[in-house]
């Protein structure tokens, strides 16, 4: 009888231990295993044909500033210079000395836009901006 009770007790302890262990079972090793084949395809973004554009402020604003600078420099509350305004933009352009034109300097030195400089991704846009300044920064 004592032997039977001991056997039952041992079996109960063993069952409980298993239950406790299984509750604490660690998450399985998770080396990367993909669920399905996903085919990604980058879309070629149509770029501006700068050569066909007349070099005036409206085209600079619509094709360079609007695409690359508007989030910070458009609107009354924006950071200076306000690039949606011709007169305000001209304050950052020195027609007599390109080397001190702050607008060009910041773009050509790769400091603007701060997170993804235009020089490193769209040199054509920078060239168009420079050409506009060179030709007198016409309205």
């Amino acid at each position: 009888m004592l032997y039977l009770r001991l056997t039952v007790l041992i079996a109960l302890v063993a069952a409980c231990s298993r239950a406790i262990i299984s509750e604490r079972e660690p998450a399985q090793s998770l080396e990367y295993r993909s669920c399905q084949v996903i085919k990604e395809e980058m879309i070629e973004v149509r770029t501006v044909d700068y050569e066909s554009l007349e070099k005036n402020f409206q085209n600079v604003k619509d094709n360079v500033f609007k695409n690359h600078c508007a989030s910070c420099h458009f609107g009354p509350d924006a950071y200076l210079p306000h690039l949606d305004d011709y007169a305000a933009t001209l304050e950052y352009v020195n027609l007599n000395s390109l080397s001190t034109s702050r607008l060009l300097l910041s773009v050509e030195k790769g400091t603007m836009p701060p997170s993804s400089p235009l020089m490193s991704r769209e040199k054509e846009a920078v060239a168009f901006l420079r050409a506009w300044v060179l030709e007198g920064a016409q309205r």
Binding site: I38, E40, I43, V45, H68, S71, C72, S115
Partner: peptide
Amino acid sequence: AQPVMQFKAGNDSYVVEKLTDGHGI
């Protein structure tokens, strides 16, 4: 909104559009 990528999972297709650009992190 500028589409920059599309991807396909099984029979379903998805488009990724860029909404804004030129900011910090």
